[in-house]
């Protein structure tokens, strides 16, 4: 438990120090969302209607692309070797890194999402719902992306490969996230079922993600 907390604390500290990536995800989110109206036109009625979808797509891209270097830096400076020799099972160590990453990258996305919702003319109550679905869904994105981050270290390739590997896996999260948000805002379908499935996806990836990522890292050492 001590080791687990130490690892979470170290990763959060690294993310917030100079050179860390804590705010980069939120910045990317902001830019992606701002780009959308330039493509769609500034029609506020249209933006309000598709706002939740834009926010979800932006949050999805931001939380996945920020994962790129999660294991790569530890691999390059030799920390990963020492991490693997610790008393924690690798699965738990990997999960600790994911938790730290979500706290420093995923949570800021949710915090700034109401401001972005304002710019897309999404009304306040609807924005609360979107933020709630993001809160329930972004852990799934982080833990699915974790597998991609581990694979890209094992294969010694980064960047776009991660997106290509992982984006298809996140489709269910996107479907149920946007469905839950739209159900609450415009109806007529009930909010409960898609939201429950979203939570289930997060919980399932919380278990599956670290196991698969640890296997990928171990295999990459061959």
């Amino acid at each position: 438990m001590n080791a687990l907390l130490a690892l979470i604390k170290r990763d959060m500290r690294l993310a917030m120090r100079v050179g860390g990536g804590a705010m980069m995800g939120a910045l990317f989110f902001l830019i992606v969302v701002v780009m959308m109206p330039f493509a769609l036109g500034p029609d506020l009625n249209l933006l309000a209607r598709i706002g939740p979808a834009i926010l979800w797509l932006g949050a999805l891209l931001a939380s996945l692309l920020a994962l790129d270097r999660l294991f790569a830096t530890d691999h390059e400076d030799g920390s990963l070797d020492v991490l693997m020799m610790g008393p924690l099972p690798l699965e738990v160590a990997v999960a600790a890194k994911a938790i730290a990453h979500w706290l420093t990258t995923g949570l800021p996305l949710i915090v700034i999402s109401p401001v972005l919702g304002l710019m897309l003319n999404v009304e306040l109550r609807a924005m609360g719902v979107v933020a709630l679905t993001l809160l329930a869904g972004t852990p799934a994105l982080t833990f699915i992306g974790l597998v991609g981050a581990a694979l890209s270290v094992a294969l010694r390739r980064g960047g776009l490969l991660l997106a290509v590997l992982v984006l298809p896996l996140t489709i269910p999260v996107l479907i149920f996230g946007v469905a839950a948000a739209n159900a609450a805002i415009v109806g007529p379908a009930p909010f409960g079922p898609p939201f429950t499935i979203l939570c289930a996806l997060s919980l399932a990836s919380l278990v599956l993600g670290p196991v698969a990522a640890a296997a990928a890292l171990r295999h990459g050492l061959e």
């Binding site: 690294l14 120090r17 030799g78």
Partner: peptide, 11 residues
């Protein structure tokens, strides 16, 4: 103790 020092420059 490998070739890399397992240190983080910002800490």
């Amino acid at each position: 103790l490998g070739h890399h020092d397992a240190l983080k420059p910002s800490l």
